[in-house]
Amino acid sequence: MSSETALAAERRARGLAPFLRSQMRNIAPFLTLIFLSGFFAFASPSFATLDNLGNILTQVSVTGIIAVGLTFVILCAEIDLSIASIANVTGIAVAYFTLQESYVNIANIPLPGAVAIILSILLCALLGLVNALGLTVIGIPSFIMTLAMMQIAAGISALLVRGQIAYKVPSLITTLGSGSIGGIPWIVIVAAIMLLGGHLVLTYTRFGRYVYMVGGNREAAEYSGLNVKLILGAVMVISAVCSGIGGMLGVAHFGSAQQNEFDTYLLDSIAAVVVGGTSLFGGRGGIGNTIVGLFVLGVLNNGLDHVNIDSFLKILIRGLILLAALVINVYAQRLRERTAE
């Protein structure tokens, strides 16, 4: 039986209305995206252009790279609040290991580009591992564990740059972060590849299945003989490494590495995953949802600029949209549970 006929059988068994109810978490974000795009296209002639689409894609790329790992974490019904800090410290680290111009007053350690990149990735993986050990071995809830890590990573950042700004990163990172090929920015391509990779892992690998099962019912996963702690630990490391990659490319994209550069990415990444419809209770959703969520946020941020709205009001509007998405998220979960029983 192919998955289409299974779906059809499911639909027949339940009727259309319950089927739509169970799919609400996928449908609602998509409708939101269409509605927002339509609204901004109508309100501003400069919104619905190919150029602007390119802008939106570039604007969501760093968030997208970070959100790949976060999707794994949220699918497991955990949270990672250290993503933005880890992105920041990794971006700073890669600059720290690169020879800076003479006017940059940082006592850094210049190394060959490849070594700098590898060391930086090791750093973020290590921080992810600390998150993982705190969560699984010691048993600290991820909310608190990653809150501490957020501070630790920020602390390492501060020690590395000491209030200064670094500009140079290895040339590979510069290319991927700010170059383009055939008119398409490399950073968009990297984000697309990572999102695709995340999707393939979640959908087609054994590990991906385990992630969904652990998120769907942790107790049942344990009674099925899965190594739940190992899976939870792995997603924390994946999240940290994705954040680190996002941080390195982000530094190249912005053209500088400094303290607190990524602060807004924490909320944006969580918002992208949750607005997209991935369940905060775990087990439902995926990269497809995250992509829709990224576009909702991207269109919203970009579109609000086009309609010339009070930039202070923008923040409030984003908050309200996030609240609405949370309401739908929780409500969709309840609907789904009711249909399942």
């Binding site: 299945r209 969904y212 019912n217 107790e219 049942a220 009674y223 899965l226 029983e341």
Partner: peptide, 20 residues
């Protein structure tokens, strides 16, 4: 409730312990 995944299809429930 403790050992089954109610929101997943039957075949995933059966295969989970032998996937490896």
């Amino acid at each position: 409730r403790d050992m089954l995944f109610h929101q997943e299809p039957v075949y995933k429930n059966i295969s989970i312990s032998i996937l490896d």
